[in-house]
């Protein structure tokens, strides 16, 4: 697991993008709890999902509003799916499995 540092880096309710071993990963910290890590680039037109509006279930791509489930990676548009990474918070630090 890789330690990405303090959870406080991520503003509450938002996501930010980390580049870990060449991979762009969007990490979200919803207001209602939980911590999620998914591939940052939207499969549709490569929008940065980290800039999207999220809740504890989904993120909405800022480009064309395609939605993705943060738990499963399933997209709202038929054949789209994004990769989901294992992530957890421990002692205020973000740990991710890449």
């Amino acid at each position: 697991m890789v330690n990405l540092g303090s959870i406080d880096k991520i503003p509450l309710g938002q996501g930010i993008c980390f580049i870990v071993e060449g991979k762009e990963i969007a990490i979200f910290r919803p207001r209602d709890g939980g911590l999620f890590a998914v591939q940052n680039k939207c499969p549709h037109r490569q929008g940065s999902l980290a800039e999207g509006v999220c809740d504890q279930n989904i993120v909405i791509c800022p480009y064309h509003a395609h939605k993705f489930n943060l738990h499963t990676g399933m997209g709202s548009e038929g054949d789209e799916k994004i990769k989901v990474y294992q992530i957890k918070e421990e002692k205020g630090e973000i740990l991710i499995e890449v």
Binding site: M1, N3, L4, K9, I10, P11, I16, F18, V20, L95
Partner: peptide, 21 residues
């Protein structure tokens, strides 16, 4: 308004970090 407002992606340097998982 918040520290990350205008920040881009954060490049993470992966040290040989061993975490007891």
């Amino acid at each position: 308004v918040y520290p990350q407002q205008f920040k881009g992606s954060e490049l993470v340097k992966v040290l040989k970090e061993v975490v007891n998982n």
